[in-house]
Design a protein around this nucleic acid. Structure first.
Length: 253
DNA sequence: GACATTTGACCCCC
DNA sequence: GGGGGTCAAATGTC
């Protein structure tokens, strides 16, 4: 079970980094509620303890990419297309769909994945042809929880809309090495209003969902709301929800 | 009419 | 040969 321990430690490591980053940010944010700070401190401490229990931090060791998507080894074709690859897990509050990361994605394919109960959807940047933006992403419902979506980003956005989106939502936020998805913006992945293949029923308005994201492979996370106007409290709320969601999932490993 | 989605087929890698 | 990723024609929506 080394893999399990390594995955657990990796995930917890990421959570810890996020908690500490959030703590730091709260430090400079006088408007932040004290309870949120306390929660963050408690969260960090809790994660730290969990990491000790998990064994060690695999930093620098494995690829730390997690295996939730059952991601097959990315073929040479794919590796050549996108050098940057990031995996995030998105929790959608409603069943409507996964996310809105502020970028323009166009769905170009969907496949049933062997052993996965849900198909995987393939998206690429809308501006692929007009601006040569090579960013792509894959979205798949988590087998364990249909409200969770595993999202794998490939490549980086080089289109103008990505830069605009990055501007809207202080990009200096979490991860220093963050490469692609800035957060927040009006519309974007419209999980098929009437999903032909995804078993879950449409929940009508995608704007109702405010997914939050935690990267599985290290130290970067972000949250956003489809409506765009997500206040700090709500952000913290959804972010913390997501952390605990991830933690409970990790516990089940 | 323009653009997005769907879906079967094709290509490539293991 | 099987599975995953992408292409492109058909179709739908605004």
């Amino acid at each position: 079970m080394d893999d399990t321990a390594a995955t657990l430690a990796t995930e917890l490591d990421g959570l810890l980094a996020m908690a500490r980053e959030l703590e730091v940010r709260l430090e400079g944010d006088q408007g932040a509620p004290g309870t949120a700070r306390e929660l963050c401190a408690a969260l960090a401490a809790s994660v730290d303890r969990a990491m000790r229990l998990a064994g060690s931090s695999p930093r620098g060791g494995g690829d730390g990419e997690g295996n939730a998507t059952g991601r097959a080894s990315v073929s040479g074709r794919k590796a050549a297309a996108g050098k940057v690859r990031r995996q995030v897990r998105v929790a959608s509050v409603t069943d409507a769909g996964p996310l809105n990361d502020g970028l323009s994605w166009r769905k170009y394919g969907q496949k049933d994945i062997l052993g996965a109960p849900y198909p995987r959807a393939y998206f690429r940047c809308t501006h692929r042809h007009t601006q040569g933006c090579q960013a792509t992403k894959q979205v798949q419902r988590a087998a364990a929880d249909p409200l969770l979506f595993d999202v794998v980003y490939h490549g980086t956005h080089t289109c103008a809309c990505a830069q605009a989106a990055a501007h809207q939502q202080s990009p200096a936020s979490f991860g220093q090495e963050q490469q692609s998805p800035p957060a927040a913006a009006p519309e974007e992945i419209q999980w098929p209003a009437t999903p032909p293949s995804f078993p879950s029923p449409p929940a009508g308005n995608v704007g109702d969902c405010y997914p939050s994201v935690c990267e599985l492979d290290g130290g970067y996370g972000y949250g956003y709301a489809a409506g765009g106007g997500l206040g700090a409290d709500m952000w913290f709320g959804s972010q913390l929800d997501e952390w605990f969601l991830n933690l409970s999932e990790v516990k089940n490993l």
